[in-house]
Amino acid sequence: MPAKDIYHETVKNALIKDGWTITHDPLRIRLARGKNLFVDLGAERLLAAERGLEKIAIEVKSFTRPSDMKDLEEALGQFVLYDRLLKRYYPEHILYLSVNEDTRKRVFEEEAGQTLIEDGTIRLVTFDVLKEEIVRWIH
């Protein structure tokens, strides 16, 4: 299994505080020929009796390299790949990229990151590192 991001446990705790039940840690996508990909977390929560369960998958990224654009390029490629494969193997799950609030401000309020959000290419869930709480969902 791949190494966990430095904020993995922080995001996991924040999701639990937000009412989510962690169902997968990690969520394995089994591909043909014995290959596997791992999305960091799978979670669900009861919304309303008539709607049933909302299911999500979370890919956690810390953006710690010297170049935010390199981190963004890598995160985007991984997000798009996982999103397409989840639609095939786990169509009930909606994928989110999870970053801390500082990263959202630094990367996703700039043109490149903002374009990805505005165009619906990427969905974000942000968190407060110290409080271990979800701050916002951006669809």
Score class of each variant (00 low, 15 high):
H8V: 00
D102Y: 13
A43C: 09
L86P: 00
A3P: 11
A14E: 04
A43E: 09
K55T: 11
R106D: 07
I6Y: 04
L85H: 04
D83G: 05
P26C: 02
V107I: 07
P91K: 03
K4Y: 07
H139I: 03
Y7H: 14
E92Q: 15
E54W: 00
E74G: 04
D128F: 02
W20S: 05
L95M: 08
R123T: 07
H93Q: 12
V135R: 11
P66T: 13
R84E: 13
Q78R: 15
F63E: 01
F79E: 02
F127D: 06
L116D: 12
I138D: 04
R123K: 15
I58K: 00
T10I: 12
I134K: 05
L41E: 01
D25M: 03
S67T: 09
L41K: 04
L116A: 13
V80S: 06
T23K: 03
R104E: 09
E118L: 15
H139T: 09
D5Q: 10
E44Y: 00
K55D: 02
D71K: 06
K70I: 13
I29L: 15
G77R: 07
R136E: 15
P26M: 06
A112S: 14
F79C: 05
L97I: 02
E132P: 04
G120E: 07
I134S: 09
F79T: 05
D40N: 15
L72F: 14
W137L: 09
R88C: 08
L53Y: 06
Y90A: 11
M1F: 05
L130F: 06
E118N: 15
Y89P: 05
E132G: 03
A49I: 06
L31C: 01
L85W: 08
D18S: 13
L46N: 12
V39Q: 11
T10G: 02
H139N: 14
I138P: 04
V135D: 11
L47S: 05
T126P: 00
D71G: 06
S98C: 05
I138E: 10
E9N: 14
L124G: 08
E110G: 01
T64I: 15
V80M: 13
E133A: 07
R33I: 08
L85N: 10
E74D: 11
N36R: 10
R84W: 04
H24Q: 13
I6H: 04
E133L: 09
A32Q: 14
V80W: 08
E132Q: 13
Q78I: 12
A32W: 11
N100H: 09
A112E: 14
R84D: 13
E59A: 08
E59I: 07
K55F: 06
T10V: 13
I16M: 09
G113S: 05
R84Y: 09
L53I: 04
E118P: 01
K61W: 08
T103L: 00
T21Y: 08
T64G: 02
E118H: 11
K70E: 15
E92Y: 06
I56Q: 07
A112P: 14
K4S: 12
E110V: 08
F63M: 00
D25S: 13
F38P: 02
A43Q: 05
